[in-house]
Amino acid sequence: MSATSSLAPPDGGREVEPAAGKAPRSRGDRVFAGTARAAGIAILVALAGVFVFLTVEGLPGLSQTAATYTPNTSFLSYVAPLLFGTVLAAVLALLLAVPFAFGIALFISHYAPRRLAVPVAYVVDLLAAVPSVVFGLWGARSLAPYLVGAHDWLAAHLGWLPFFDGPASVTGRTVFTAGIVLAIMVLPIITAISREIFAQTPRLNEEAALALGATRWEMIRLTVFPYARSGMVSAVMLGLGRALGETMAVAMVLSASPVVTLNLISNTNPATIASNIASSFTEATPAKLHVLIATGLVLFAFTFAVNFAARWVVGRSARRMAR
């Protein structure tokens, strides 16, 4: 190809005056620009397609015969416990993951000696690369049996809280365990984003705080957190979006039933929308398939709302900082 410029007859580009923006463009230019534009439009079409096809295949799922929704009777009563389970598991995961994620992010950006910070950041990225099915396998086969003791302990000592109102599961395959697995899975996402924002704190501001006689923690409170606040919020929201949509880890860890309960450690656990799709999918009749797709649409709308809220928060504070 390197010879083209000398051998090929000069294409239209030779005639284009670089200064004249409105000069007629060569055919190659038009084709190339058109292709690029088409790719952009393809993304629009693809997302529109997601909405359209999910709606077309999902809408019939709202009005099937009552038997399709066993053990419930209508779509709303079918999806409500699933949505509850989804939120419960995701919130639990966030409660566990967020303090650790911020801690590790601070560790990498401000506490660790350089020689340690780089490999730790790398290891956290590796954690993000582990496929969810492997997390599920590990959670169900290794973590759950290990946590049986913790379940017993929680039931015995914190049983007065509705969350730990036993009887403790003997397999450990509960929302509690699923929440921990989910927490480990969203941890790297929150860590990666907040670590980058923490590291972007202007050095001048940090030095100003230190020069006033701030301890390291005071410096972080005075300069890093105010600077990173919106980024931290959006990191958490993105983690939440991920936790809401995660399928396999929950499907493999939980032994689920359609219940609404805050009890995290018993044998009856609410499924999540995603895990319910995965586990009821194989035996689904065409009618049930519509119902499952409709629940998928609900999940999509829900995660979309969460992600949208996250971007809105970030955008708003970006505008405020710009003023």
């Binding site: 997302l47 949509g245 399928t247 799709i277 499952l292 999940l299 992600n307």
Partner: peptide, 18 residues
């Protein structure tokens, strides 16, 4: 941005619906 937030199972359901 929206696409990065699509749960993977929803992507699967979309392909299936298609």
């Amino acid at each position: 941005d929206v696409m990065t937030g699509i749960p993977s199972i929803v992507a699967g359901l979309f392909a299936l619906a298609l």
